[in-house]
Simulated assay, not measured.
Amino acid sequence: MIDNDVTVVVATRNRAGRLMETMPMHEGPVILVDNASDDGTPDLIEAAFPQVRVVRLEDNRGAAARNAGVELAATEFVAFADDDSYWTAGSLRKAAGLLRDFPRTGLLCAQVLVGPEQFLDPISAEMARAPLGVPDDAPGPAVLGFLSCAAVVRRSAFLQAGGFNPTLHVYGEEALLAMDMAAAGWLLSYTPELTVRHLPEPAGRDPRARRRRQARNDLLTAMLRRPPRVVARTAARAWRHDRGAVTDAARLLPWALRRRHPLPTRVERDLCTLTSR
């Protein structure tokens, strides 16, 4: 059964082959936001799936490309998917029902099954342990992070929090958005009754570059929202593993300081609970 109350937003770049496999699996309206592909992806998808709305960006915005899809969505709820993932049948319908039943909830994170073997993603297993407990007015364990390909958001909550930060681009971009949604008073919940299939390609992108960008973004996120002691600890960890990440973040220090907004005490306390385990 297709649920037209949830728009699926997919951000992509030069992944036409994988999209041809996953696009037919999506239920409901789909918006594909293309990050300036140069392999003909937009034309191929428009020809193969005329029901899909294709948005062509002139530059590669990384994760922030999803913001354009959310802004264009005409539904109350939006689900994110990567070009190598899809929501299983019925999950979006369930998600819409949960978000209606729990009006303080701004984001649901599904369980993620990886590969053809359908292994449970370790992040999903950690969320299921519920270190922050299960609030009475939430549909599942409280979380302060999520996997972008496994999140359904209340569109108004996402826009209120400002969406994905363009400067972070990709890798670790979810952390800042999760903090800002929680700071705005929204609940974020892990809901294993919703399922996402993730089918990553065996040969992924440059792992060293990914680690450096992830470390840079972790440090920038700390600069933007966390106490000085956490910033120092995050910088020290990044310096031990990749000094280039610290250099990259240092170049953006003026940008971060202009946008720095420390988190409410309750959100910082929950983050400390997660990192102390």
Rank of each mutant, 00 (worst) to 15 (best):
R205E: 08
A89W: 09
F80D: 12
G40T: 13
T195H: 05
P192E: 14
V134D: 04
A110W: 10
V54P: 13
E27L: 09
A203W: 04
R100P: 09
R216K: 10
R211M: 14
Y171F: 09
A138P: 10
A235L: 12
S91K: 00
D84L: 03
N217W: 02
A256C: 08
I123C: 05
F77Q: 05
T275Q: 10
E76I: 00
D121H: 15
R210P: 04
H198S: 05
G90C: 13
V152D: 02
L113A: 10
T234K: 09
T7G: 07
A209M: 09
L194V: 06
A74P: 03
V54I: 04
M127N: 09
E58I: 09
N60F: 02
A48H: 07
N4E: 00
A222L: 01
Y171A: 07
V54Q: 04
T41N: 10
A95P: 08
P139K: 09
R155E: 06
D38T: 15
F80L: 09
N217G: 04
M20K: 10
A95I: 11
P207Y: 10
R210W: 08
L19I: 07
R260P: 14
A215M: 14
V246C: 09
F164R: 08
A250L: 14
T265H: 15
R208W: 11
R229A: 15
P131W: 00
N35Y: 06
V230A: 13
R225G: 02
R61W: 13
A161T: 01
T273S: 07
A178Q: 06
F77G: 06
E21H: 08
V52Q: 04
S37T: 11
R251N: 05
P135G: 04
E126P: 00
D206Q: 12
N4A: 05
T88S: 11
F102G: 11
L219C: 07
P139F: 00
D121W: 09
M20L: 15
E76L: 03
A48C: 09
A178H: 11
P228R: 06
N14T: 06
R66S: 01
E58L: 08
P228C: 08
A48V: 05
L19N: 02
A222C: 05
L108M: 03
A183G: 11
P200Q: 12
S85P: 07
T191L: 01
V230S: 12
G62V: 07
F119R: 13
Q111M: 13
R269A: 14
L132F: 01
I31T: 01
T191P: 05
W239M: 15
V153L: 08
R61M: 11
L113T: 02
R13S: 03
F146Q: 00
R205S: 12
S156T: 10
D82T: 03
P116H: 15
E58G: 13
R269E: 14
P116C: 13
R229S: 14
A238Q: 01
L263Y: 11
